[in-house]
Write a protein that binds this DNA or RNA. Structure first.
Lengths: 213, 213, 213, 213
DNA sequence: TCCTAAGCGAGACGGTACGTCCAGTCTTCGT
DNA sequence: ACGAAGACTGGACGTACCGTCTCGCTTAGGA
């Protein structure tokens, strides 16, 4: 089954040091970095974007403010980086049919954005995007790029199968698959559910079906 | 031609309480109220949501801070009220054809959200929605309700004409018409143009065409 | 026995201007005036000079702020007027001996400034004098002038009796009788008691005794 | 000649706590402290007590308001500390005669309190004392304690010489030397001059002369 | 008897300062 | 040679009063 997993963006970076190794004279920079990102995410989720203060992060992470600013240039950069931590790594579905593939993809997205934890995070994230092109770019390349890539593969496959028009406007297709979901999430506040997933997929298949019907 | 007009939301001030409602003391200044709302909007448009400070509003409106807090309980409430001032009143297009009607509607929306003045305002507004359910509600009932109404009329007309399915999911149709536009505006940052309008309308007409086509 | 009494300074309200001075409109309310003065004194005594706000007076007196400013030009003027209300009217003692007279006078003063009610009032009053020459003048002519007069009479009598030098520096004698008391009250904070009264009187009698003693 | 000098009250910073008292983090800036005290004194002298605002001090000292509140708990505490800066360090006169000594001391006091700069400061200071026991205490221990010490020495010397009674009430003597001066400064507003100094000293010498005259 | 001017309680007005909170920077000490 | 702790400047926050300005309502004298 198709799965998006919330993964820790931590790179392999040091799987070592389980056997009681006290870093006497050496910095524990990576530990601080992770504590800060963790505290940032935790506060974003519990208190919301507005209540997120650098001082709060520093206190929760048991870290000096300067250490935060040593790693990130601004509050925005920190948030941007923290958000990267919850990138959805999208597995490209392969169910054998175009409809099955698209439905799997949409259902996965529905699942992600229904998760209360992400639902709490998203509005703040959008606020951050609204005020920082930098964060916007990070979200786009982090949150969305994977999804774009997956959709593109699916669309190519669908066109190859003759299920969709060869002249398909990829950009529009992306917006139609993603737009309604975010529209509900951010603007209308209506339910994000399976009915939405099915509706969008059906619309795609019918609306972008090859002309020579 | 279809037009959205910025209208003043000032209303008849509640005719609902006839029984003896005379507050004592000097009445609140409508002039101050308007100056504050005007300053708020001006600053929202020029400087953005983050740069909007109560002190800035007070200075620009030549008003004491206390007066602002006397009229509105919070910054959010002020912004919410200011936003009410720029409700779009949507005229329902009637071109004779379903495609013409939908295209007129979408093109109007494209025009509105391409307007640099609104483009500057919108991200801040979304940020405000993200952090205040109150503002979100106002935006939904103000900005969007008119649009919903217009779309509903058009869809009914299209179904009556036999251009769309009678079983059409209205909610989905609304999201498909609006979602891609906001998705580009808030998330992907891609161009909002006539191509988008045409693409969405064509998709609707093909994808929601009656089954026995 | 010698007595200082707190008297109401209310006077006959100037019968001096009979020639055609009748202001039009509603006359100013004497009740309001008295309520304001009463509230002012009460607040001065309980809360102190700093906690005395015009708004507080208005609330306590159940009066509009404008009414206060209609009667007095400033906060200082109000306080000045309120202070007039508690003028000490000093009775000149006549015990038959200079020592008895001076002692009676000093003991009366000691009694007055030990009274907790006056003790609460005085520091604020001094604060008011410190910042308003107007109030200072009122205090001087109200609180102190009576006392000066009494002392002058006693000194004259003492000189006539031959108990004090005929070349006595009256001004200095006044300061010596009053200074130590206020010095303790305002600066050193030490006890104002009978020992002080006796000490000062003895000092006077010995220090200002006729030279050919 | 006897001199009072304005000295910096900076002290050895409490040698009383030897057991390991090193606070973590950046230590408080002595430069900021001094800038704040300097600005406070300057404003006290030029603008007066009432015109002294924390914001004004912060601006003049080029310091954040928070820094002021970090160093002093209140406006009063700040003023109290600022006043300490102009402590008069009294040199004990030694002219060879009791009269010469006392006269030197009184003339020094007269000189200090005639100085227009101090005269401007004093009323505000008294106002501050009136409203804050804390300030009162600081003034007593700063402004006055030195003076008390000097007077005590002089009185002891005078008693030893047989110029004053051995049973002299020291407390009363202190009040008689200081009271008239402050009485004029704060209450009667009369001139503080050499005549006052001479009068008080003569009174002391005669009034407190040994009994067996 | 009505008219009209001024005073009344109430409270909003433009301002100034308050004392607090964070942002982002800088400084010290301990490990 | 870091890193925690925390002080630094700066600026907005929301509150308290200042002295002024309406409101709708007395309260009186003069028309």
């Amino acid at each position: 089954m198709t799965r998006s997993r919330v993964v820790n963006a931590k790179k392999a970076k040091a799987p070592a040091t389980p056997p009681a190794k006290r870093p006497r004279g050496r910095p524990r920079s990576e530990a601080a970095r992770e504590a800060i990102l963790g505290a940032t995410l935790a506060l974003l989720r519990t208190a919301g974007y507005d209540a997120l203060t650098i001082e709060g992060v520093a206190e929760r992470a048991e870290v000096g403010k300067k250490t935060i600013y040593r790693h990130w240039a601004s509050k925005e950069a920190l948030i941007a980086d923290a958000v990267k931590q919850i990138v959805s790594e999208i597995e490209i579905p392969d169910t054998g049919t175009t409809k099955g593939d698209l439905l799997a993809l949409m259902r996965d997205a529905v699942r992600v954005y229904r998760d209360p934890e992400n639902a709490t995070l998203m509005p703040g994230l959008v606020a951050a995007m609204a005020r920082s092109e930098r964060i916007a770019e990070i979200v786009r390349s982090g949150f969305l790029a994977e999804r774009r890539r997956a959709i593109t593969v699916l669309l190519d496959r669908a066109v190859a199968r003759g299920d969709l028009q060869s002249t398909l406007d990829r950009e529009l297709a992306l917006d139609v698959l993603g737009g309604p979901l975010f529209y509900r999430l951010l603007i209308t506040g209506r339910a994000i559910d399976d009915r939405l997933a099915r509706g969008v997929v059906d619309l795609m298949l019918h609306g972008f079906a090859p002309h020579s019907n």
